[in-house]
Design a protein around this nucleic acid. Structure first.
Lengths: 199, 199
DNA sequence: CCTACCGATCGGTAGG
DNA sequence: CCTACCGATCGGTAGG
């Protein structure tokens, strides 16, 4: 919660910020302790001591990325009323987090999910958990929106969240691969059709 | 076209099949010559001679995966009438290619696109090209469907292809990360709403 | 297709 | 936080 106030915490903080940026582009496996140490002008072993193992570094880096996501996506939407308004703001907040290149490799979670979906272990487990947390937050508000009558009758919240997630993650993938920001326009048009303007 | 008839082609064939399967899970960077050689009971240098460099192996592996995609997804849809029928069959064919676990790591192209979107070079360029080929095939048929009046008036083909690609790639991502086949049901429901039954 | 080898880098340890 | 070091593995080469 206060990662920058512990005695040696500033170094650890700097390491993790650099690690998260690097891993969003090169992956958590492509993240090497030697390269990270060189970039931060530290010795390999000095850096290593903070984490105890490469897996420890990977898990700490994921935790840091999750904290950034919480701060940059979840928090800004917390002021909106739970239900349709919150759902729309969460999605818009997520799109802006992608558009402003918060991480150089796009959505950190999407990147490591694609990387670790076939690699069993604690890192994969943590990625699955983070993915579920985000999905559950969307589902919760979709369900509320339905029960509050803010969506067309007959709307299936699970189907709605599937489609919203599909559009946002597609925008991320297309933007990263083709560098084309027009994909955000397409995504917003698709989303607007699913989430009617508040009456 | 006849990769198994050249003199030393069978060995190369076996290498690339194994390489494509491995890379769909571990990535084209995680693919190591040593490990591949061990699995195929060859010497490292014997295997290496077929490709000249790791990048050569990566490009050849991508080509092989593209050929599999052509055979397993594009060809089965070739019998359908260009336009809406072909578009629907391409999408359905793609979903079945995912469901039958053609590659252990899911869609090969999605996997390497996520891996190489931040790594400039010939491999990334080849991935971008393959992605465009698939996208163009979808666009072509979406456009035809519109001009043939097979879709609701006012349908934007680009928007339609964005949404179809979003649904299929989301199904792939969810299936790989969570192992939940119900995502294909959600994907098909979303797709059905976009592609009305032929009159 | 092989054996034998190369320098570089990997994750990690000992010890301060 | 460091220097000094470890065995293993990396991509790649020489030479047959």
């Amino acid at each position: 919660m206060r990662p920058s106030t512990a005695p040696g915490g500033r170094t650890r903080d700097a390491i993790l910020n650099r690690a998260a940026a690097l891993a969003s582009s090169e992956g958590l496996e492509g993240l090497t302790i030697g390269r990270l140490a060189t970039e931060l002008k530290m010795s390999k072993s000095g850096l290593f001591d903070h984490f105890g193992s490469k897996q420890g570094l990977q898990l700490a880096t994921l935790e840091r990325a999750n904290a950034v996501f919480e701060r940059e996506v979840i928090q800004p939407a917390a002021s909106a009323k739970p239900g349709l308004a919150r759902l729309r703001m969460l999605i818009e907040s997520y799109l802006q987090y992608l558009e402003r290149d918060t991480f150089p490799g796009g959505c950190f979670l999407s990147a490591v999910a694609a990387e670790f979906d076939g690699r069993p272990g604690p890192v994969r487990d943590a990625v699955v958990l983070a993915s579920r947390v985000w999905g559950t937050e969307l589902e919760r508000n979709a369900l509320l929106a339905c029960s509050q009558g803010e969506l067309p009758p007959g709307t299936d919240p699970e189907q709605l969240v599937f489609e919203l997630g599909a559009f946002t993650d597609r925008a991320n993938a297309v933007y990263q691969l083709h560098g084309d920001r027009r994909t955000f326009l397409l995504a917003r048009a698709s989303i607007a059709r699913l989430l009617p303007r508040q009456r």
